[in-house]
Amino acid sequence: MSQRAIDWWVGIFVLLGIAALAVLALRVGNLSGFAYGNGYVLHADFNNVGSLKDRSPVKLGGVTIGEVTHIGMNPQTFRAEVTMRIEPSIKLPIDTGASIYTQGLLGEQYVAIQPGGMPQNLKPGATITLTQGAVNIDQLIGQMVFDKASGSSSGTSTH
């Protein structure tokens, strides 16, 4: 093995390593946020964001059209402020709604967009007001158990 061939091989080896790291960082890790880098910004206020986090997807009809870039708290209204970047080709009417849903029972949470029917579109930086926050599963289960318990106590009081 000549020294020159070794130089070549080691060079290729190192490049392969760097390329693999780049692919891991961009494709597998979430450094690929630049996908929506040229998107426009929308805000939405929710009373509860659940476990929504930065980089959670924003979907319309099941298709990802953007991502959450920031989650903050509005100190005046005590509501969670979610900032999103939306793909520029998607223009949303001003009566568009936003909800936070969960993928499957254990899946991650995402923002689902329900487009409205008004002719005017939301401008970049606008805020969506028609919102429905995350469903709190604990609350839901608690409510179910309560309903069930009250129902059965009235129906089976024969003994």
Binding site: L21, A25, R27, V28, G29, N30, S32, S56
Partner: peptide
């Protein structure tokens, strides 16, 4: 496929997981 990569991307972090492994 979209879910496969999308879920992966939103749960794998560069510093926490990739660099940790390295």
């Amino acid at each position: 496929g979209g879910t496969f990569w999308g879920q992966m991307q939103s749960n794998v972090t560069l510093s926490g997981d990739i660099l940790n492994g390295l």
